[in-house]
């Protein structure tokens, strides 16, 4: 996904003189050709994340459209107040593009894990959040974000599904188990594991790579009594959105995602997927438990 992002951003810099890119060393080598062609609009501030966002805010104040890129914890967590004040409070927007979340570089340990990024962005107003599940989804999502004026967060990962699923952010039904069946919504790269988990269960599976704004109309059209949400970031991040969307209906909601605990374990991203119960077996275990009829009496 990062390569696709670099290629598309390099094209955007050439196509639109309004586009600018702000880096804090991460991926600077990959953008070196773009930096040579557009030295005034490809700006690497060094390992200075507060400045990175501040610069993006200043660029936007002059009418440019900044794309800001770094590793997820440094982009979102370290510079959160700059995102809140240097972008939102100034009334300007930027496109933030992260790599690494939630646990792509698991062996690097807690400092490089970032399951809370979407939750933090979700404390802000009016942001679009896009979580592609396949590299081929990235160019269209990035172009849509850069073409807009608002702020957007694009979350790139090494985790991916086997095939891309398009769409403009609306829920896409990937597997239809019929009316009234439980609905599972998988966000971004969680889809393949979710599909495998419920392969022999009567569960409808829908996909989105745009959790904000969440397609609540699509949710209301598809949801029956039981809704399962599988997200690749903190478990429960979208619970409030789904609960509000279904507030006028009796419903049950199971929200799966990454746990809050620092596991203090290394290994691979796949190991962490398993430890957080987001592999097919883990998702299946949770879904079966959730759908099991309550004991009578």
């Amino acid at each position: 996904m990062r390569d696709t992002f670099v290629d598309t951003t390099t094209d955007l810099l050439a196509e639109d003189p309004r586009t600018a890119l702000v880096l804090a060393d991460i991926s600077a080598d990959a953008f070196a050709p773009a930096a040579r062609r557009h030295p005034d609009r490809v700006l690497n501030v060094g390992i200075r994340e507060q400045l990175m966002i501040g610069v993006a805010g200043g660029l936007a104040l002059t009418g440019l459209r900044p794309v800001v890129h770094s590793y997820a914890p440094f982009l979102v967590e370290r510079a959160y107040e700059q995102i809140k004040l240097d972008l939102d409070h100034q009334g300007v927007g930027a496109v933030l593009v992260s790599v690494g979340a939630s646990y792509d570089r698991a062996a690097a340990g807690r400092t490089h894990l970032c399951p809370a990024d979407v939750s933090l962005i979700d404390t802000l107003h009016g942001w679009t959040v896009r979580v592609p599940g396949h590299p081929a989804e990235v160019p269209a999502l990035l172009r849509t974000a850069v073409d807009g004026d608002g702020s957007a967060y694009l979350r790139l990962s090494t985790l991916r599904n086997d095939v891309p699923h398009g769409g403009d952010g609306a829920l896409v039904v990937v597997r239809d188990a019929g009316p009234g069946t439980p609905l599972l919504v998988a966000v971004g790269p969680t889809l393949d594991a979710a599909l495998a988990a419920v392969a022999d269960l009567p569960v409808t599976v829908a996909y989105t790579n745009r959790p904000r704004p969440f397609d609540t109309a699509g949710l209301r059209a598809l949801a029956g009594e039981a809704v399962i949400l599988v997200e690749p970031y903190l478990a429960g991040t979208s619970t409030r959105v789904l609960s509000a969307a279904l507030a006028d209906r009796p419903h049950r909601l199971l929200a799966l995602g990454v746990g809050r605990e620092d596991l203090r374990r290394y290994g691979t991203a796949d190991d962490h997927t398993r430890w957080h119960g987001l592999d097919p077996a883990g998702v299946r275990r949770s879904v079966v438990g959730f759908l099991r009829p309550a004991p009578v009496g």
């Binding site: 700006l43 507060q50 501040g54 610069v55 993006a56 009418g63 240097d86």
Partner: peptide, 10 residues
Amino acid sequence: LGLGVGTALG
């Protein structure tokens, strides 16, 4: 100052 740097660059 960060916003000012960005403004000057823009």
